[in-house]
Nucleic acid binder design. Structure first.
Lengths: 197, 197
DNA sequence: GTCTATACGAGGATAGAC
DNA sequence: GTCTATCCTCGTATAGAC
């Protein structure tokens, strides 16, 4: 509304982030040049530096944004008191959320090694928070005698790896609908945790 | 034995591949320069081109070598006729083999997008062979009524993702021994597939 | 806010000496 | 078989015009 004539700042910024995310996911952070990103957006390379101090920060902000969206979306879900129902909710949430943002997921898992140590540490903290949410569900179910899990930490990591793996092959319009995928994974998750009730 | 005096060809080649694998795993293919690899080995950059036509081929040969070692090692395992025992064998084999070669595993999964299309296709074929071996086990168990798996293809992909995920956190000398990890994962795999008998 | 022009370093790969 | 020297391209980032 208050946009000044000739100013495109409010639209160029998001377009830069979108182009960078797509290109990073496709070719990898190190293989993508600032010139490529600029071309994609339709501006000159120098203009990118009005929106990010450098390439590293651009990458980090994409990854941080993704992880914070993930945590916020998880927090917004209603979590059932029953651990089995809570685990089903987490399973379906994880598959749905990740399937809808495959580029961000890919970048956030693959480009960790290209982050400077300080940025890496911040992102690891966010990732850890997410894992802890799942582990808490497993622990409460274990205490209630509804799960049979020898090691909740290990089980949480195993489940997340399994669920995130969906992204390596799932494509909209493929052999299986997302609802079917969710159902089949929930079947495996439920059984793997020895869920009863 | 027949090594000519002054010739180090038979030792330099493997050292180049080892250094490249380590560096690619650490920093990513695109982020590693031929000069870095040469420095690691203790030769000049130009000398690398006596052992590989270019950087792309060096990457591809590392990945192909890893996948062929994997398939050969799997083929060398004795596969029990009983599907449940075969699945346990596969589970333990996968964890053990991958834990022992974390760099090669990392590179083979992360650098697929940096392969030229022809090389990518060849590697996908090898990966597919490996997945098919697991799916065959699941199918035979399903036919025998010993597994309860709604979709063997999907289950095979889910299990491989879960098992390969071990590599993201397992470190020798950590909280859990590899034998314990194997046992806990086998417990989850067995239950997830609804194994009986 | 975006452009052009450019500084400056590093990249892959090759030629020819030893 | 390895080295030195070099070609040429491309990278990130900045300065200053409009």
């Amino acid at each position: 509304m208050a946009r000044k004539p000739g100013s495109k700042a409010e639209i160029t910024g998001p377009r830069i982030r979108a182009a960078a995310l797509r290109l990073f996911a496709r070719h990898g952070y190190a293989a993508v040049s600032m010139r490529q990103i600029a071309t994609e957006v339709g501006v000159q390379a120098g203009a990118l530096y009005l929106y990010t101090p450098d390439k590293q920060t651009l990458l980090f902000e994409l990854m941080r944004g993704h992880m914070e969206d993930l945590l916020a979306a998880l927090a917004a879900e209603v979590q059932p008191a029953d651990p089995v129902a809570a685990l089903e909710g987490f399973t379906r949430f994880h598959i749905r959320f990740h399937a809808a943002r495959s580029d961000a997921v890919f970048v956030s898992y693959m480009e960790l090694r290209n982050l400077e140590p300080a940025n890496f540490a911040r992102l690891e903290g966010l990732r850890r928070s997410y894992e802890d949410r799942l582990e808490a569900i497993l622990q409460s179910g274990q205490r209630a005698g509804q799960f049979a899990v020898p090691d909740t930490k290990l089980a949480a990591l195993a489940l997340i790896a399994m669920l995130t793996g969906v992204n390596t092959w799932y494509r909209e319009g493929g052999r299986l609908s997302l609802a079917t995928v969710e159902a089949h994974y929930w079947d495996m998750v439920r059984k793997a945790m020895g869920a009863v009730g």
